[in-house]
């Protein structure tokens, strides 16, 4: 009787183990399925369109170029969340940031002084000073002449123009 019980238990255990083994085998996604799933996820995100995933035994390797560190991390997370993925090797490169615009070139004061003198020659009511690239205007000018004078001064490439002119 005792032996029968032991046998029964052993049989039950065996059955459980084999059933669970079979079912886990059945539900484990194939590498190709994982790859398809990840590729689908990436294609939905425009900045990950250049990232490719290869899968081997559930280990995903990402390669290609990401826009920035955030999208690189995003790619990794999307891959990790995919069913059947054991681990992710993230070999994505991050694109270099776009070059910053060239700094504005400001004319030197001696150049500005000469240019300002030329520009204001026909406007005797206008007094000027130039310091550290800043052109300061005082005195007075006719309303009709203001734009003309300003166009000349702006093309001298000053840092800025402080207009304290009285406009008549």
């Amino acid at each position: 009787m005792k032996i029968t019980i032991v046998r029964l238990i052993v049989l039950m255990l065996f059955t459980t183990v084999s059933v669970s083994t079979i079912s886990s085998c059945k539900s484990k996604p194939k590498d190709t399925d994982i790859q398809t799933a990840i590729t689908g996820k990436f294609s939905a995100v425009s900045e990950l369109s250049a990232v490719t995933a290869t899968v081997s035994d559930g280990v995903v390797t990402l390669s290609g170029e990401c826009k920035d560190e955030a999208s690189k991390a995003n790619a990794e997370n999307l891959a990790k969340e995919t069913e059947g993925v054991k681990s992710v090797i993230n070999n994505c490169t991050v694109a270099a940031p776009p070059p910053a615009p060239a700094p504005v070139v400001i004319s030197a004061d001696d150049q500005l002084i000469k240019g300002v003198a030329d520009a204001t020659k026909d406007f005797p009511g206008v007094k000027t000073s130039v310091k550290d690239g800043v052109v300061t205007l005082t005195g007075e000018i006719k309303k009709a002449d203001l734009k003309k004078l300003m166009q000349s001064l702006h093309s001298l490439k000053p840092k800025k123009i402080e207009n304290h002119l009285t406009v008549k």
Partner: peptide, 22 residues
Amino acid sequence: LWDIYSKLDPDFRSADVVMDVN
């Protein structure tokens, strides 16, 4: 361009634009 500029900054008082468009 200059018309728009003078509308947004009448009499060019703000000293916050340098527009060199030839």
